[in-house]
C-alpha cells in the first residue's frame, strides 16, 4: 500500500474544505486549533496502471498549514510532518510521499534526527520526497513544451531558479547530460553551493535573477519566488516558457503577458481515471487524472514494489535514477502535463 502526506494551501482553504467534507468541528476553527489537530487518513485511493495492475493507497492529511511557517510556529509545523509520518507507518503504509511543504520542512529542520515518535521507531525507508520523479517530469516538460512553442533547445537558454536545491540540481544534471541546451543559467542565493554545482556540471553561468530572466527562453522555477520580487514581463524574451515547479504555484497569477507561457511544473497526467476524492480540493484542472509528480512517485514505487526511500537526502538525484523512475512512469501510464494546444 502507498501513502500520500498532503496539506491544504491556507487556513481559509482548510476551513472551506472541512466544511465541504462535513467536519464542522474543524471548519470554524482558527490557526491555534490546526496547530493542535492530529493527522487523519481522509481518503482511500485506487490506481490502475496502464499495464492493468491495480494498487491501493491512503491520503494522510497532516493538518499542516503554510501560515504556521509564516507566523514562526515552527514547532507546530515540524510536529505535523513527523506525526503524519508516524501515522502513515502505524497504518501499515509501505511507501509514502511527502507532498507540498512536507519534504521541505523535513529537510530544512533536519527532522531526520528524530527516529522515535511515541511508541514508533520511524522507518525512514518507508518515505520518499518524490523529488526524483518531480525532477524527471520537469525535464520532460522542458523538452516537450519547448517543442510545442517551436523553441529549439540547441539554440535556447534555460534559467534554473533554485538551481542548487534537490530538484533544481537534478534538473541541471539532466539538461546537461540528456539535452543539447545551448546555455544554462544557474540562479540561487547561496554562492558556495552555486560554485559547487557549476564545478560539478563543468558548465553553466551563475547569474542574478533579473539578468537571467532577461536572457532566458525557458525559465524553470523550482524555488518559490522570493518575497517582494516582481517580474516585469517586458523584460522577458518575446516567447518565453515558464515552468512553475515551485510550491505553491502562483506564477500564473503574477505574470500575464502575450508570449509568456506558464506551465505548472512537476504535474503529471495519468492515462486512466484515479479513484479518489482528495484531488478535487487541490485545484487541479482535471482532478481525476492530474496529480503532483511526487505523489505519483509513491504510486510508482508501489507498482514496482520498490518499497524504499527512492528520493531522500539533499542533492542525491542522479540522471540514472531519473531515467529509472522515468521508465516506470511511462510504463504505468503517467505523462507530463503540457501546454494547452496553441490557438
Amino acid at each position: 500500500m502507498f501513502g500520500l502526506i498532503g496539506h491544504l494551501t491556507s487556513l481559509e482553504h482548510a476551513q472551506l474544505v472541512a466544511r465541504d467534507l462535513g467536519y464542522p468541528e474543524y471548519a470554524d476553527q482558527g490557526l491555534d486549533f490546526w496547530c493542535m489537530a492530529p493527522p487523519q487518513i481522509v481518503d482511500s485511493i485506487t490506481v490502475t496502471s496502464a499495464t492493468g495492475q491495480v494498487i491501493h493507497g491512503k491520503y494522510v492529511e497532516s493538518c499542516f498549514l503554510p501560515e504556521m511557517l509564516a507566523t514562526q510556529r515552527v514547532k507546530s509545523a515540524t510536529r505535523k510532518i513527523i506525526n503524519a509520518m508516524a501515522h502513515a507507518q502505524k497504518h501499515g503504509i509501505d511507501i509514502t510521499a511527502l507532498g507540498g511543504f512536507s519534504s521541505i520542512i523535513f529537510e530544512n529542520f533536519n527532522l531526520e534526527r528524530i527516529t522515535r515518535v511515541r511508541d514508533i521507531d520511524l522507518d525512514i525507508r518507508r518515505f520518499t520526497t518524490g523529488n526524483t520523479h518531480t525532477a524527471y517530469i520537469i525535464c520532460r516538460q522542458i523538452e516537450q513544451a519547448s517543442q510545442q512553442l517551436g523553441l529549439d533547445l540547441a539554440k535556447s537558454t534555460v534559467a534554473v531558479c533554485g538551481a542548487t536545491g534537490d530538484i533544481g540540481s537534478a534538473v541541471c544534471r539532466w539538461l546537461d547530460a540528456r539535452t543539447d541546451v545551448d546555455e544554462l543559467l544557474l540562479v540561487a542565493r547561496n554562492q558556495t553551493r552555486l560554485q559547487d554545482l557549476q564545478a560539478e556540471l563543468g558548465r553553466g553561468k551563475i547569474m542574478a535573477l533579473e539578468e537571467a530572466l532577461s536572457l532566458a527562453d525557458i525559465v524553470v522555477w523550482v524555488a518559490s519566488m522570493p518575497k517582494g520580487v516582481e517580474i516585469d514581463p517586458t523584460t522577458l524574451k518575446q516567447t518565453c516558457l515558464m515552468i512553475d515547479g515551485g510550491y505553491p504555484k502562483n506564477l500564473a497569477t503574477k505574470i500575464q503577458a502575450p508570449g509568456v507561457h506558464i506551465l505548472s511544473g512537476g504535474i503529471v497526467e495519468h492515462s486512466l481515471d484515479i479513484d479518489w476524492k482528495i484531488m478535487n480540493i487541490v485545484n487541479m484542472d482535471t482532478p481525476s487524472r492530474q496529480l503532483f509528480a511526487c505523489f505519483a512517485e509513491a504510486m510508482l514505487l508501489e507498482f514496482e514494489q520498490w518499497h524504499t526511500n527512492f528520493s531522500w537526502g539533499r542533492n542525491q538525484i542522479t540522471v540514472e535514477k531519473m531515467e529509472k523512475i522515468g521508465q516506470s512512469s511511462v510504463r504505468h501510464g503517467f505523462r507530463p502535463l503540457l501546454l494547452p494546444p496553441l490557438t
Binding site: C35, M36, A37, P38, K75, R79, N83, H87, R118
Partner: peptide
C-alpha cells in the same frame, strides 16, 4: 499544543 495534539492522536 503538543500535549493536546498527542492526546488527540
Amino acid at each position: 499544543e503538543a500535549l493536546v495534539e498527542d492526546f488527540m492522536i
